[in-house]
Each structure stands twice: as C-alpha cells, then as structure tokens.
C-alpha cells in the first residue's frame, strides 16, 4: 500500500514537471505564431474594441516590453516558473496565480460534480441495460451512442431549453448559487456517461455469463445481493480505469461548457486569454489544465491499483472476483 502511494507520488511529480515544461513552451510558441500584432490584441482586451488605437497599442507595447526577443520572454517565464511564479496577466495586470486560483476552484467543482454524475449515470444505465435486456436495453444502447456522438455544446443547449426554459426547474446559466452547477455538470455527465454505460454493460455481460455468478444465484442469493457481492467489484475496475481515460474528454468539454453556462472556470479563462493574446495567462491556464489531468489521472490509477488485488503486491490475496474474466 505504502509502495503504491510512494510510486504514485514520484510519478505525479515527474509527469507534472514534464507537462509544465512542454505545455508552457508549446503554448508560448503557438501563441507567438498566431497572426496579428499582440500589442493591439492586448489593448483590445484591456480597453474594449472601441478604444483600441495606435496610441493605446503603443502604450501596451512599451509597458510590457513586447519588443524583447522571443527567447528573452520565454526565459523570463521559465525562470519565474522555476521559482513557482506564473508571471502577470498582460491584460489585467494582476498576477496570473491570483487570476487563475478562483477559476481552478470553479473548474474542480464543476468537473468533480460532472464526473461523479457521469459514473453514477453510466453505472445505472449500463446495469439496467444488461439486467433487464429487451427493449429498454435497446433504447439505452441507442441513447448512449447518440450521447457519445453529441458535442457538449449541443447537449448543453438542449438541456437549457428543456430543463430551464420550458420546465423552469433550474437556472439557465450563472455562477455563485448552489443550483447553478446542476445544468453544466449534467451536460458534461451526459457527454461522458454513454461510454461508461457501454463499458459497464459489456463487463457485466461477461460477469453474468460466468459460472461463478450462476453458482451464486443457485446457492440462493437474490439478484441484487449477487450483483452487489460478485459483479460490482469486477465491474468497478474497468469502469474506474475507463472513466479515468475519459477525464481528457471532461477537461476538453469544460472549455466549451463553461463559456456556454457563464461559469468562470479555467476553460473560460483560457478562451478569453487566447482571444486577448494574454500569453502568461494562456500558459498558466494550459499548465493548470495539464496538471489537473496528471493529478486526476494519478488518483484514478492509484485507486485502480489499490482496488485490484492482482496489483496489490505483497498481501498475496487472489480474490475470486479476478477470475470472472
């Protein structure tokens, strides 16, 4: 157990360092390769397009040292990063960390809610489809396929129309009140749950067809208890592993969904900083999203290792659930 946690810690540090450098350098060069004059863009971000002119752009250029060679600007950023500073926003002037810290909280709140909801929905749908079979399974299968193929933007708009505009159960968009998280989280969850449901179903199919499960029922266990005792652990592992892989979809989806629902998260900040050519904020936001992915992925991997008796080295246990495959 200790060894697993230690190796996970070590891995997350190495990965994080690697991600930080690659993401930072890549976003720096990608932003620089965009067409257009950065000073004018930043001035537009600061003062609004009505007030952008050569004078305000010149003021921005002088203030920010945009004429410095690229390598000098990049070196400054790397130096700052090495001392755990992310620099200052070119548009607002405040420190990137102060700018992004609240957005990270908002994004974590939204993505965790979405992820938990996606797993719950996926497990429930997958289980119903496999246990009940028949037309309901058919419907769930179709719905899952459609959900997997739908962009979160579309799902979000439909949910807004249905649940907020017509039924008036939830606010359309906004931030700051408890109920505001439900619609964006549900949007992301629906986009993710289709895949999870299909994994749950196919794994459950194997389990239900196994001799061990049949024996459990023959010895008199009711279906619910048999599912809980014998199927749940076997299904949990691949589901968890798969939903970990889906985190990347979640982080991608956050960018679109946050803008649609006026949710002030990292994705939203990223979109705005790209438009405004605010390089330090782009680097900071991309970095945070990259690190978020590394951390969440490590958490999932570690959880999988701790749950899987085959990977839990040293305790010698070989659980019967492992035999179902």
């Amino acid at each position: 157990m200790f060894r697993i946690l230690f190796s996970a810690g070590l891995r997350v540090l190495t990965q994080a360092g690697f991600v930080a450098v690659v993401v930072g350098v890549l976003s720096f060069f990608l932003t620089r390769s965009l067409p257009g004059d950065a000073a004018f863009r930043i001035a537009a971000g600061r003062y609004g397009y009505d007030n952008v002119n050569a004078a305000s752009a010149a003021a921005v250029r002088a203030e920010l040292g945009l004429d410095l060679p690229a390598w000098q600007q990049l070196l400054t950023w790397v130096g700052d990063l090495a001392s755990f500073r992310l620099g200052q926003s070119m548009v607002s002037g405040e420190s990137v960390f102060e700018h992004l810290a609240p957005t990270l909280g908002a994004t974590l709140h939204l993505s965790l809610a979405a992820w938990v909801l996606a797993v719950v929905l996926g497990v429930v749908l997958g289980t119903i489809a496999e246990v009940r079979r028949g037309w309901i399974a058919h419907v769930i299968d179709k719905v899952c396929t459609v959900l997997r193929g739908s962009p979160p933007f579309l799902i979000g708009l439909l949910l807004m129309l249905g649940l907020a505009v017509h039924l008036k159960w939830l606010p359309v968009a906004g931030y700051g009140d408890t109920e505001n998280v439900v619609l964006p989280a549900l949007t992301l969850a629906l986009a993710l749950c289709g895949g999870i449901a299909q994994v749950v179903r196919s794994r459950l199919e194997q389990v239900l067809a196994s001799d061990a499960f049949e024996f459990a029922q023959i010895k008199g266990l009711p279906l619910g208890a048999a599912l809980w005792r014998h199927a749940a652990p076997a299904v949990a592992l691949p589901t968890l592993a798969y939903s970990g892989v889906q985190l990347i979809l979640l982080i991608e989806g956050v960018v679109v969904v946050e803008t649609l629902f006026a949710w002030p998260g990292v994705g939203h900040a990223l979109v705005h900083s790209v438009v405004e050519r605010d390089v330090p904020v782009i680097q900071g936001a991309a970095l945070l999203m990259g690190l978020l992915f590394v951390v969440l992925n490590t958490l999932v991997d570690t959880a999988v290792k701790l749950l899987d008796p085959r990977q839990r080295e040293g305790n010698g246990a070989v659980a019967s659930e492992g035999e179902f495959a």
């Binding site: 907020a164 505009v165 606010p171 359309v172 968009a173 649609l260 629902f261 006026a262």
Partner: peptide, 19 residues
C-alpha cells in the same frame, strides 16, 4: 449582474423569465 458572453445563453435566460 451576470456576464454571459454567448448570445444563446442570454436568449434563454430572457426566455426562462429568470432574468
């Protein structure tokens, strides 16, 4: 005051009667 940058979002906020 809520800043909603997407037109779709503002349209539906108005339609829902909450804004």
């Amino acid at each position: 005051y809520l800043a909603a940058s997407r037109g779709e979002t503002r349209g539906m906020l108005a339609e829902s009667g909450k804004a």
